Amino acid sequence: MSDQAWTDRIVGERMTVDQEFAARIEESQFSSQQWSLIMTATEFEIEHPDDPDRARIVANTEKLDGIIPELENVQAGMGAMAGQAADTGSGSGSSGGLVDSIMGALGIGGGNGGSSEKEQREAAERLTQEYADELQSHLESKGRWESVRRAAGGD
């Protein structure tokens, strides 16, 4: 059975875990838009699916490097929109929007305390694994884990 087949079986559970995990995302350094981007680059796998004692859902984050730079663009775009909404025409001071995002893209300027790409990747890896753990816990509580594990193992 393909890796995709077991994930297709748990779409409803994923939606439930997504809703439950939303509070955790709000506490994190990522916006919901950034989290969505991170999740598109993350694949979930079941490690050791043929061993009930060792099987667990893991987050495969190999593709994160491709989207990490885009996380800043998403945040900069949100900052620019917020800056436009907050700007009352005084023209004084920077809202941290467009100019800062251009300077950041050029690699100049001190930044606004933003994290490095390495730090963002590490935070994304931790958070996606937390999500994977939560998903497995949810499947276990619903009595679905064994059938999903077996499906991933090709049984």
Score class of each variant (00 low, 15 high):
residue 88 T to L: 09
residue 33 Q to C: 09
residue 6 W to G: 10
residue 23 A to E: 13
residue 3 D to C: 07
residue 88 T to Y: 03
residue 45 E to F: 09
residue 18 D to L: 00
residue 23 A to I: 04
residue 63 K to S: 11
residue 45 E to V: 09
residue 50 D to G: 10
residue 87 D to C: 09
residue 47 E to I: 00
residue 23 A to K: 08
residue 63 K to D: 14
residue 88 T to R: 09
residue 64 L to S: 02
residue 87 D to E: 06
residue 61 T to Y: 10
residue 6 W to A: 15
residue 69 P to E: 03
residue 27 E to H: 02
residue 3 D to Y: 05
residue 44 F to L: 03
residue 49 P to H: 09
residue 81 M to Y: 07
residue 8 D to K: 11
residue 93 G to N: 02
residue 22 A to P: 05
residue 5 A to C: 11
residue 87 D to A: 11
residue 69 P to Y: 00
residue 85 A to G: 10
residue 61 T to W: 11
residue 6 W to F: 15
residue 67 I to N: 07
residue 92 S to D: 14
residue 23 A to V: 08
residue 54 R to S: 14
residue 33 Q to N: 14
residue 41 A to C: 00
residue 32 S to R: 14
residue 56 R to A: 13
residue 23 A to W: 01
residue 89 G to K: 03
residue 89 G to D: 04
residue 94 S to T: 12
residue 15 M to A: 14
residue 28 S to N: 07
residue 96 G to P: 12
residue 92 S to N: 11
residue 27 E to C: 00
residue 85 A to N: 08
residue 24 R to K: 14
residue 30 F to V: 03
residue 70 E to M: 12
residue 76 A to C: 10
residue 7 T to S: 13
residue 5 A to Y: 09
residue 45 E to Q: 14
residue 66 G to T: 04
residue 44 F to M: 00
residue 59 A to Y: 02
residue 61 T to N: 13
residue 38 I to R: 04
residue 83 G to L: 03
residue 33 Q to G: 07
residue 35 W to H: 03
residue 58 V to Q: 06
residue 36 S to F: 10
residue 61 T to V: 15
residue 89 G to Q: 04
residue 60 N to L: 07
residue 91 G to P: 04
residue 18 D to P: 04
residue 12 G to E: 13
residue 3 D to E: 12
residue 19 Q to K: 15
residue 52 P to E: 08
residue 79 G to S: 14
residue 85 A to V: 11
residue 95 S to V: 11
residue 80 A to P: 05
residue 12 G to A: 12
residue 49 P to F: 04
residue 70 E to N: 13
residue 3 D to W: 07
residue 61 T to F: 11
residue 90 S to R: 06
residue 17 V to E: 00
residue 94 S to K: 08
residue 20 E to I: 03
residue 53 D to V: 12
residue 90 S to G: 13
residue 54 R to Q: 15
residue 58 V to H: 00
residue 72 E to S: 11
residue 22 A to W: 01
residue 87 D to Q: 04
residue 82 A to T: 10
residue 60 N to Q: 08
residue 76 A to L: 01
residue 30 F to G: 00
residue 48 H to W: 15
residue 50 D to K: 11
residue 37 L to C: 12
residue 12 G to M: 11
residue 24 R to I: 08
residue 22 A to L: 03
residue 28 S to F: 00
residue 76 A to G: 14
residue 53 D to R: 14
residue 9 R to V: 08
residue 19 Q to N: 12
residue 3 D to V: 05
residue 87 D to G: 07
residue 97 G to F: 02
residue 97 G to S: 07
residue 63 K to Q: 13
residue 38 I to T: 05
residue 49 P to T: 03
residue 48 H to E: 15
residue 68 I to W: 01
residue 56 R to W: 06
residue 79 G to K: 14
residue 93 G to V: 02
residue 11 V to M: 03
residue 79 G to D: 15
residue 55 A to L: 12
residue 47 E to G: 01
residue 66 G to K: 06
residue 26 E to M: 06
residue 64 L to D: 08
residue 65 D to N: 13
residue 80 A to L: 11
residue 71 L to Q: 02
residue 87 D to N: 12
residue 57 I to H: 01
residue 94 S to I: 03
residue 20 E to G: 13
residue 24 R to F: 05
residue 36 S to N: 15
residue 72 E to R: 13
